[in-house]
């Protein structure tokens, strides 16, 4: 994945984002060493502490030697639990694997691996992305749903798939990853920040309104153009299935097959004539749409053309993409659309 242009640090960055020591993972794995791991008691830890004080007070009041011993044992237990929680995260090696591009609104899956090299299994390690401005406004506990928790068996590498909510198209820096654990006693919360130093690509939202059609279709394949607007089960010949891809509309999915446990399959239809189309930025100007809506419309056209296995080209203000077809070409086009300058 290519790196986006460095965002100028012109904006004010709050100190709590600068102060924490963050492990850096770019081409190499980031190792969580003792300087990177933070630990605080959880609310249960605080409650436990209150209980310890109550027990201590009782022991003093009744001069109970065994009460003292018991209180001290439990206090020491919390102390040991703290060391275990900290150790559970220590020396894990985090490496970025890939980020599969998604359309706006879908969750970007950031794939990463955590490697255990110290011959001891790590239990209940959670990877999550905290940063999500929009969710703070709507006050939804998104980080909870987006977190993944796994064990990392001794001397092995475990894959983590951490979801990230997307809001705008373009190339974004993967936000700071939080790795955390409360194992074994939930009395302490240990965490560490990792900058994966990679970007993830978000394609524009495909326009849902398919009333607008490219003018170039008119002279290349009018009949097809009508078909794309109507139901896919219409005149087209069903040609088979392919695995679900991001961007496929629910209509295209074979729900019967997925209910039988075959996974998500997308129905494919044979095109009548895989003729050549040029989608042009200029074409979208006819439809009284704003800047982003025009991009969305182009995205919709590209998706539909790809589904029909047509050859298509893309003419954008910053340059043209020569007509072609196939997955590579499809993603090149979507990426070009994703990286369109903002209005």
């Amino acid at each position: 994945m290519q790196t986006a242009e460095k965002i100028k640090p012109s904006k004010f960055t709050p100190f709590w984002k600068i102060w924490p020591r963050v492990s850096q993972a770019s081409t190499q794995a980031a190792t969580l060493n003792s300087r990177n791991i933070y630990i605080i008691p959880t609310r249960w830890g605080l409650l436990y502490m209150v209980m310890l004080f109550a027990m201590l007070a009782g022991s003093i009041n009744y001069t109970l030697s065994m009460g003292f011993a018991f209180t001290f044992l439990l206090a020491s237990l919390a102390n040991i639990a703290m060391l275990h929680t900290w150790r559970n995260l220590l020396h894990c090696q985090v490496q970025f694997l890939k980020a599969v591009p998604v359309f706006v609104g879908q969750n970007a899956m950031i794939e990463l691996t955590i490697t255990e090299t110290k011959y001891r299994t790590r239990y209940a390690i959670t990877a999550k992305f905290k940063a999500n401005e929009l969710d703070k406004k709507s006050k939804q506990p998104t980080s909870m749903h987006l977190a993944t928790t796994e064990d990392i068996t001794a001397a092995t590498t475990q894959a983590f798939h951490s979801a990230l909510k997307t809001q705008t198209r373009g190339l974004h820096r993967i936000p700071r990853l939080t790795l955390c654990t409360e194992f074994p006693l939930s009395l302490f919360y240990a965490w560490s920040y990792v900058d994966l130093n990679h970007d993830y690509l978000v394609y524009p939202t495909p326009a849902s309104n398919t009333d607008f059609q490219p003018s170039s279709i008119a002279f290349s394949s009018q009949s097809n153009a009508e078909n794309t607007t109507t139901n896919h089960q219409g005149d087209e010949d069903f040609s088979g299935h392919r695995p679900y891809q991001l961007g496929d509309t629910p209509k295209q999915i074979n729900w019967k097959a997925s209910s039988r446990g075959l996974g998500l399959l997308t129905k494919q239809y044979e095109s009548f004539s895989p003729s050549l189309i040029h989608f042009s930025w200029a074409d979208t100007a006819h439809f009284n749409l704003n800047y982003e809506q025009r991009i969305s419309l182009l995205t919709r056209w590209v998706i539909d053309a790809n589904q029909r296995k047509q050859r298509y080209g893309l003419n954008l203000p910053r340059g043209n993409i020569a007509p072609s077809n196939g997955e590579m070409h499809y993603h090149t086009c979507l990426k070009a659309l994703a990286l369109m300058e903002t209005a």
């Binding site: 007070a57 003093i60 009041n61 009744y62 001069t63 003292f68 011993a69 001290f72 044992l73 206090a75 020491s76 237990l77 102390n79 040991i80």
Partner: peptide, 20 residues
């Protein structure tokens, strides 16, 4: 593993004479 610190606390932690 908690026993060593428990023993230290048991021996050294100041005993306040009760009752409170």
């Amino acid at each position: 593993q908690a026993i060593p610190v428990m023993l230290i606390l048991f021996i050294l932690f100041p005993r306040i004479p009760g009752p409170l």
